[in-house]
């Protein structure tokens, strides 16, 4: 019975991988839920480990011992396939290579964690090297022929002309200058503040504004009594509304009406414009950093901002200083993120 359960479970995993790998079952059929994706991936990996351990246990209880060598190889292959075919959008090769290497190290650590397991793992390799059975002699001969062919194949492919665009090391957040001059006024980035992030008394108050941004979770719901489009809205919320109007007149064509970088013109560019809803963009930065980037645009990227692939106009040529501050206010309000502060 245990063998049957183990076999069925293992078989299901193999079938699932095959369906995913051959595209019969698109990766998107098993949804990665927005907002939960990072944990979902880790939970799925944990589930995989549990299934593999269960299958192995069930089979061993039933007297079928999967060789440790093949356990290790199969599990590693599974991780590589999972990363390649399950996670979408596709993971860049450089990151998959890092993950694959770490997984290989993990498999090595597991199979060699004690002497007995390590011997079991090594045995098939040692057999290929020096066992005197007919099968192993044949296998050695096959390797003798295959290995040079494999090396020849690698050499040949490395000599083929490669027309792919080269890999780019990007600097997403180049270091800002100490100060920036916009419309004749100098703003010190470390100390300047958004003049519209104010409480009803007109004083700069981040806590007040933080309490009125939309919720970060799915749906991005507005807080009760914090609707900037309410005609009675005053102060901070009124400035958010004004910022929103500026955003939809100027920015949303590229940055999208959900601020996720998928605007009308977005896909004409590579990379597409910054996705403000991602926790790695404006959520990581000071408002003054955004102020500097918006004012100076792609052309104002500093030397270290490689590969300078940004077509954003220098908005200081089109907007007033106040308008830039208001649009930044709106971006933080809409995404539900808080600008970075120092205290």
């Amino acid at each position: 019975m245990k063998v049957l359960i183990g076999s069925v479970l293992g078989g299901l995993v193999v079938v699932l991988i095959a369906l995913l790998a051959f595209g019969v079952l698109p990766a998107t059929s098993l949804k990665l839920v927005e907002g939960y994706m990072p944990m979902q991936m880790l939970v799925e990996l944990a589930g995989s480990v549990a299934i593999f351990a269960t299958v192995s246990y069930m089979l061993s209880q039933g007297g079928i011992q999967l060789p440790r060598f093949w356990q290790g190889i199969l599990f590693w292959a599974y991780i590589l396939l999972y990363l390649k075919f399950r996670v979408y959008p596709p993971i860049p090769f450089s990151v998959r290579a890092m993950y694959g290497t770490v997984s290989l190290i993990a498999v090595f650590m597991w199979v060699s964690s004690n002497e007995e397991d390590w011997k079991k793992f090594k045995q098939p390799i040692m057999n290929v090297l020096d066992a005197n059975t007919g099968f192993h002699k044949g296998l050695r001969t096959v390797y003798l022929v295959l290995l040079p062919i494999l090396l020849w194949g690698f050499s040949y492919s490395s000599f083929l002309p490669n027309l792919d665009e080269p890999v780019e090391l990007r600097t997403v957040h180049p270091a800002p200058p100490a100060s920036t001059k916009v419309h004749g006024k100098t703003f010190v980035l470390q100390t300047s503040q958004n003049p519209y992030r104010v409480n009803p008394e007109g004083k700069y108050d981040q806590e007040y504004s933080n309490a009125r941004i939309v919720e970060q979770a799915m749906g991005r719901l507005m807080k009760p009594d914090a609707n900037p489009w309410d005609e009675k809205a005053e102060g901070y919320l009124k400035y958010v509304r004004e910022g929103g109007e500026i955003f939809f007149q100027n920015c949303h064509f590229c940055h999208g009406d959900n601020l996720n970088g998928r605007g009308l013109h977005a896909f004409a560019f590579n990379p597409i414009p910054a996705n403000f809803t991602d926790p790695g963009t404006i959520a990581q930065l000071q408002e003054t950093f955004i102020f500097w980037r918006v004012s100076k645009g792609g052309i104002g990227l500093p030397n270290e901002g490689f590969p300078w692939a940004s077509v954003m106009p220098p908005w200081e040529q089109h907007l007033t200083t106040d308008e830039i501050w208001k649009v930044i206010l709106f971006e933080y309000w809409h995404t539900g993120y808080y600008p970075r502060t120092w205290d």
Partner: peptide, 29 residues
């Protein structure tokens, strides 16, 4: 070890649909 700034070809960048990967981007912070 997940990088915030990933090394990729422009083709990979396009396939990913932007500079931020929705799953791995979260590990990068």
């Amino acid at each position: 070890i997940t990088p915030h700034t990933m090394v990729m070809t422009p083709a990979e960048l396009k396939a990913m649909g932007g500079q931020q990967h929705p799953v791995l981007g979260n590990y990068g912070v």
